[in-house]
Amino acid sequence: MLNETLSSLSYFGIFLTGAVYVLAVWLQKKTRLSILNPLLVSCVAIMILLLVTGIDYSVYQYGKLNADGSHDGTGAVFFQNLLTPTTVCLAIPLYEKLSYLKKYPLAIFGGILSGTAACLTSILGLSVAFNLTHEQYVTLLPKSITTAIGMGVSEELGGLVSVTIASIIVTGIFGNVTAGWILRLFRINHPVAMGLACGTAAHAMGTSRARDFGSIQEAMSGLSIAVCGLLTVVLASVFAMIQW
């Protein structure tokens, strides 16, 4: 009943996403608890809401159901469609902090390269330890890079693309929520190093957290998304050749 009504109406998903996110930001400001990360709280709240009320994900995500079975696009996907232009705009903070790239080229590329290599090696080690199939292993290889590149890598290597997407998202959420603690734990406090760590480990979701730490962190994290993504394209194809 509820589902039928909502699937005949436009803008439900946009409204729900915006309203829940604004509330989640308010909740964190009020409580000052970093575990109440607005992205995490919004996702969990909306998942529960959809599961409890039985509203279809497709109606929430893609909007009103048209007569021909397509959706009108006025759901949460409206925000998702802004992701490519937003990634393009990450060039702006990077441009403004270009002097750091010129000052520490070795540290920046060395850091991202070691992080990417550590990521792929540890995925290999744990996949062997858990006795995963080769298909499951290559599915997880691109888990730390931006979704758009990760999907392509997974497809190329013969992984399960939908699981790759899920693992990229969970990695992003986890990195976004825990970045502050991890950086403090390992005493990573140089703004350039903080940004590189966030972007290399948790792509764009890490970058939106790096923004909270400062503008240098944001710029370096944005740079890491691109560099780590490109390095993973090359390195993952080498790692995929390993069999056990």
């Binding site: 520490y104 060395g110 991202i112 499951q136 990695t171 890491s224």
Partner: peptide, 25 residues
């Protein structure tokens, strides 16, 4: 296994990237 791999490798990647770049800086 997915959850364990995500948690371990994300912490490790963040730590290695941050520590190596900090040392190189």
């Amino acid at each position: 296994p997915i959850l364990v791999i995500i948690v371990v490798t994300t912490v490790l990647t963040m730590a290695v990237t941050g520590l190596v770049s900090q040392r190189l800086i």
